[in-house]
């Protein structure tokens, strides 16, 4: 099942490490195994089996989100909801402040016989700005947290091969310590039926 060097496609981790100095500055250079599947269920099973067998699953790359994979990987829940809530709160405060300040304080205006501080007419703008701020906070939160920004170049170095945006599901296993047993790893893999296994190096 494990392929020979000649069969391997282009290196799965294309820009692994540029030189040794970089490696010592930012972390340790570690060996990674990219185990590819063609089906989300097998991927999920593989993650569970590998983790149960004591291997460290660094990440899973997939063309679409797999249900239940966060739990299988043991990832903590996202806190984006809180970000959005705080954004919305800020929007409401800004909207309210803006309207009260311009209409009732800086230049009090009586329009249509309503008091300068008439609250009902503030509902629409306050609502819109609440939603606007919450939405912007959500997107900025997502992009900042995952460092997503327009960049020049090709595929990001963290992505194991081009297939994971098409039809490949890749489980990345990291060799964290010397206790990593290739034989045991191969034994576990042989029960999981991956379509392809490749390896590479990356600084983690």
């Amino acid at each position: 099942m494990r392929r020979t060097e000649a069969d391997l496609p282009a290196a799965p981790f294309p820009v692994a490490v540029r030189d040794e100095r970089e490696a010592t500055r930012e972390g340790t250079r570690r060996r990674l195994h990219a185990v590819a599947f063609d089906d989300p269920h097998r991927t999920l099973e593989a993650v569970r089996a590998l983790r149960a067998a004591g291997f460290e699953v660094h990440d899973v790359h997939a063309p679409f989100p797999i249900h239940g994979i966060e739990e299988a990987l043991g990832l903590p829940p996202s806190r984006l909801g809180r970000t959005a809530f705080l954004g919305g709160l800020a929007g409401a405060v800004v909207a309210f402040g803006l309207q009260v300040w311009t209409h009732a304080y800086d230049w009090p205006l009586v329009i249509g016989g309503k008091s300068p501080l008439a609250l009902p007419s503030q509902v629409p703008v306050s609502f819109e700005l609440t939603v606007l701020f919450a939405a912007v906070a959500t997107v900025v939160g997502l992009l900042a947290r995952r460092r997503l920004f327009p960049r020049v170049g090709h595929r990001p170095p963290t992505q194991p091969g081009p297939g994971v945006t098409d039809d490949r599901f890749v489980v990345v296993v990291v060799e964290r310590d010397a206790g990593f047993s290739s034989a045991r790893f191969d034994a576990v893999l042989s029960r999981l039926h991956p379509v392809e296994v490749t390896e590479g190096w990356r600084v983690l």
């Binding site: 249509g112 009902p120 007419s121």
Partner: peptide
């Protein structure tokens, strides 16, 4: 509720 109130309040 707000729609009804706002429209009647504005029209006065």
């Amino acid at each position: 509720g707000v729609s009804q109130f706002l429209i009647i309040w504005s029209g006065n």
